[in-house]
Design a protein around this nucleic acid. Structure first.
Length: 580
RNA sequence: GCGCCUGUAGCUCAGCUGGAUAGAGCAACGGAUUUCUAAUCCGUGGGUCAGGAGUUCGAAUCUCUUCAGGCGCGCCA
């Protein structure tokens, strides 16, 4: 219907005297026809006359009056009038206005979806937490966000691939391995445990599991390992790693075992959290610098051949000056080990080589300083850096009984994602993680998420869905078939559902905005408004005692409302409740 | 010091590529239940949109600036 209105507006614009094509294009770009925010203004509204007035130096009100009278004469609408400073407000004919109900009920799951992203592929990389321990609540927000934008983009027709990048090649994995190693041989190490090793109880579990299926020899001369370790916490663990690698051939078995154990845990937690990945990318698959044909060597070589990577002070640097980064960055250290950045350069090259139209990285906001240098590497490798879209996710502060919960993996003293799921459930957790724009700080009150207080928006929306589900159940008890047509709403004898119909008609535009901005929270706020409109209707209007004709109409309308709530929740990865 | 983000009601936050009287929930106060789930609804009060300047027919929204807060500025990951 909006399309029909726009067609008439186009015709009107071209009919104006002394207007040229570029002016028309510019007016169309800047103006918009949308559904109104209030039924008092009719169903649809356009600001085109005000935009046109400013470009053509004419009076907006005059243009609006002219356009309104042309549209009115076409008899395509119930009513058209100019309003305020120059808006055009359109009241649709009832059959057009009500058609949304039929559209939804004919194909509930399709409603709101689009083909905007047809033939475009997007890769979303998110979570990518170091595989050194279970996911904690600090990872939850990025997990919920990445998964949600994946669902939203899919529903808008994009081909979406979700990927987890596993840092299995660096120092952190060595520390993990050493931590497990000491636990395996704790009898020999006595009460020694490195200060900077991973202390969580899961390390002992992994050690136990390893011993169960592998034979381990006790260490004869423990002093070889522990004598004269450096005082410094960081140097101590590095030295220990070095010695274990040197003395014990079991190192790489333990390393693989520990990595796989942790990854299994992470995968289980993500599954519980209703987050799925299409692809798990191992950093180690990029190879190492010793191999001239490895992905990482080739990426660095390319940069060198373009004179963007250069040697200085024994290290190899990337020139990032063009991208606005404040200093050049080291790719290969003095001791020839590549930095994390070097892996990332090769990884991003690989992602682009795989042919995606767009790459979305979901990063913790503390990594924002990293964006410029990655962009520099992408441009340096000869690609368009606009292919990469980095979405930053701010930390969420979680409060339990008024106290902030901890989330440090190293100390082992943390509130895991699994704990959170057990405490409040996947759906409430996802809901609150997504309830605020991702790049802003979020205070997340766990007590609120499970409370039955009025403040708990999650249950407020769920309750609307459950109430409709219950009503439909009662209707079905006394009627074998669903009604065929909302006749009394179409003929205008029953108008109490109009606000609801207007509200559900807005859903496709909300989804579109959400997909363009990558903001799932828009859907949450929309659902809250829809739930409010429903609760208000429900309170004022007993449904089941209505006349048969009205009841049929209401049931069809509420069924559509229920579908829209379910669709919105689906995009957030949340299961709608059928009863509470 | 430099870079990024933020500042809207007592609290927690919405507010679209600039648009009609700045919204919601909580808290406060006053109401609604012989009726489909009261985890609900209705009403009242509460705002110099941090301050200032600019662009515009029109600014919470865009630009500049001041103030306040958060984060980041490793041959860590």
């Amino acid at each position: 219907m909006i399309q029909t209105i726009n067609e008439q507006i186009d015709k009107f614009l071209s009919s104006l005297p002394e207007i040229n094509n570029s002016q028309i294009i510019s007016i169309k770009e800047r103006s918009a026809t949308t559904l109104t925010d209030d039924l008092k203004k009719g169903h649809a509204t356009s600001n085109v006359c005000m935009i046109a007035a400013s470009i053509l130096k004419q009076n907006p009100k005059d243009l609006a009056v002219k356009l309104a009278s042309i549209m009115e004469k076409s008899e395509k609408y119930e009513n058209v009038e100019s309003a305020g400073p120059g808006f055009i407000n359109v009241t649709l004919k009832r059959e057009d206005f009500v058609s949304t109900i039929k559209q939804i009920n004919d194909n509930p799951k399709e409603f709101g979806t689009s083909k905007d992203g047809e033939n475009k592929s997007v890769q979303i990389e998110f979570v990518s937490a170091n595989p050194t321990g279970p996911l904690h609540v600090g990872h939850g927000r990025g997990a919920a966000y990445g998964d949600a934008i994946g669902r939203i983009l899919s529903s808008c027709g994009f081909r979406v691939e979700k990927e987890y990048y596993i840092n299995d090649a660096g120092r952190q994995i060595d520390i993990l391995t050493a931590s497990v190693y000491v636990r395996i041989h704790q009898d020999s190490f006595k009460d020694f445990f490195p200060k900077n090793a991973y202390k969580g109880s899961y390390i002992e579990d992994i050690a136990k599991a390893f011993k169960k299926i592998n034979s381990t020899k006790s260490i004869r001369d423990i002093h070889l390992y522990t004598a004269q370790l450096p005082e410094d916490d960081e140097k101590e663990i590095d030295a220990l790693v070095f010695r274990i690698k040197d003395f014990d051939s079991q190192w790489s078995d333990i390393k693989d075992f520990a990595l796989n154990s942790v990854l299994e845990t992470i995968k289980e937690d993500l599954k519980l959290f209703n987050v799925s990945f299409d692809h798990w990318f191992y950093e180690s698959s990029l190879g190492d610098m010793a191999d001239k044909n490895s992905k990482i060597s080739l990426a660095i070589e390319t940069l060198k051949s373009k004179k963007l990577a250069f040697e200085e002070k024994g290290a190899i640097w990337l020139d990032t000056s063009e991208s606005g980064d404040d200093k050049n960055r080291v790719l290969i250290r003095e001791d020839e080990r590549p930095t994390y950045f070097a892996s990332d350069v090769a990884y991003h090259k690989n992602k682009i080589d795989r042919g995606f139209d767009k790459l979305i990285n979901v990063w913790g906001a503390d990594h924002h300083g990293y964006i410029k240098r990655i962009e520099a590497s992408i441009s340096g490798l000869g690609f368009n850096k606009d292919k990469l879209d980095v979405q930053l996710v701010q930390f969420a502060n979680l409060f339990k009984d008024g106290k902030k919960v901890k989330m440090s993996t190293r100390s082992g003293d943390f509130y895991s994602l699994k704990d959170l799921i057990q405490d409040i459930g996947t759906d409430a957790a996802r809901f609150y993680y997504l309830s605020k724009q991702a790049d802003q700080h979020l205070d997340f009150d766990l007590n609120l998420a499970t409370s039955d207080s009025k403040e708990n928006m999650f249950y407020y929306i769920q309750y609307a869905h459950a109430r409709i589900f219950s009503l439909l159940g009662k209707y079905k008890n006394s009627n074998t078939n669903m009604p065929s047509s909302p006749d009394s709403i179409i003929n205008g004898s029953y108008k109490k559902c109009d606000k609801l119909i207007h509200e559900i008609s807005r859903y496709p535009s909300i989804l579109k905005r959400s997909s363009l901005s990558l903001h799932p929270h828009l859907i949450i706020f929309y659902l809250k408004d829809l739930a409010h409109t429903f609760h208000s209707f429900y309170n004022d209007n007993p449904v089941l005692t209505e006349s048969e004709e009205n009841l049929d109409s209401i049931i069809l309308c509420l069924d559509a409302v229920k579908s829209v709530i379910a669709n919105g929740f689906e995009l957030l990865g949340i299961e709608p409740m059928e009863k509470m």
